[in-house]
Simulated assay, not measured.
Amino acid sequence: MRQPAGRSARRTGGERKPREERWAELIEVATQVFYEKGYEAASLQDIADRLGMLKGSLYYYIQSKEDLLFDVISAVHREGLSVIQARADTEGDPLQRLENVIVGHVEHTCRNLVPTTVFLHELSALPPERRQEVLGSEHAYQGVFRGLIELAQKEGLVRADVDPRLAALSVLGATNWVYRWFRPGGEFTPEKIGAQMAEMVIRGIASEKVLSARVAGQA
């Protein structure tokens, strides 16, 4: 049974682990409450009421509201990271895999607006050391994008003047912002947004030989 992330360093030897089903429900409800009210305005009582349990019962699972936010944020980060790592491990050259990663990230964001919003809005509510614990010392999420850009650059697929770190930050900044304007059921589907954003990114950083090959392939 998975141990809740926020409590890994806080359990004592005699503490029981929460049942997986109840823990998953707690994370889901807390995510929704933080989304609706914001972390600062939300209370543990709000979450307990939504779960139909006593506030004191929450302390079986957590020690504080900050612990709960940490667990919510960690869960969102782990799931998103798993999605883009899977896309990065597909076949193809580094630039093709970067395109797959961008599409996957955008589609995942569009289909998970509530947890994505909580992550992007409330990460800063955690103390710096806990934010670092979520993101990892090497900023694992950003690292997937940066690593593929670096590989593509070494293979001559990305222009030599492109700074991989700056490019990765720019891509994440643009794709993360989708959560602010995407509307489910609207004119633009997650697939269309992902494909077009990926195309714009690739055209912005690709080397001349790659761009020429793409033009030739469309002729």
Rank of each mutant, 00 (worst) to 15 (best):
R183D: 06
R180L: 13
W181A: 06
Y179M: 06
P184Q: 05
V178C: 06
R165A: 09
A168V: 06
A174R: 03
E208F: 09
V144W: 05
F182R: 04
L169H: 12
E155I: 06
T175Q: 03
L157G: 05
R183N: 08
N176A: 04
L151W: 08
G194Q: 02
A152I: 09
A167K: 00
L166Q: 15
G204P: 12
E150T: 12
L148A: 02
I205S: 00
E155S: 09
R203Q: 14
V178R: 03
A198W: 00
L166R: 12
A152Y: 06
G173E: 08
K192Q: 13
P164Q: 01
T189N: 07
F182L: 02
I205A: 02
I149D: 00
K192N: 05
A174H: 06
V162S: 05
P164A: 08
Q196P: 10
Y179R: 15
R159Y: 10
P184S: 02
A168E: 04
P184I: 04
Q153G: 02
I149P: 00
V162I: 15
M197W: 10
G194C: 07
A168M: 10
E187W: 15
V158T: 05
V171G: 01
V158L: 00
A206I: 03
L172C: 03
E155A: 14
R180P: 02
I205Q: 01
E150H: 09
I205K: 00
P164S: 11
A167W: 01
F188R: 05
M197I: 11
V144K: 00
M200Q: 15
N176R: 15
R183T: 12
V162M: 02
A152F: 11
G186E: 02
R183I: 12
A195E: 09
I193V: 15
S207V: 04
S207K: 05
G186A: 11
V178T: 04
V178S: 00
R165Y: 11
A198K: 08
P184R: 03
I205C: 04
R159L: 07
F188N: 00
A198S: 11
D163A: 06
G156C: 09
E155L: 13
M200D: 12
L166M: 13
P164C: 08
K192V: 14
P190K: 13
K192M: 11
V158W: 04
S170D: 11
D161C: 01
I205E: 01
G194H: 03
R165K: 14
Q153T: 11
A160M: 07
E155R: 13
F182W: 15
R165T: 13
Q196C: 08
P190V: 12
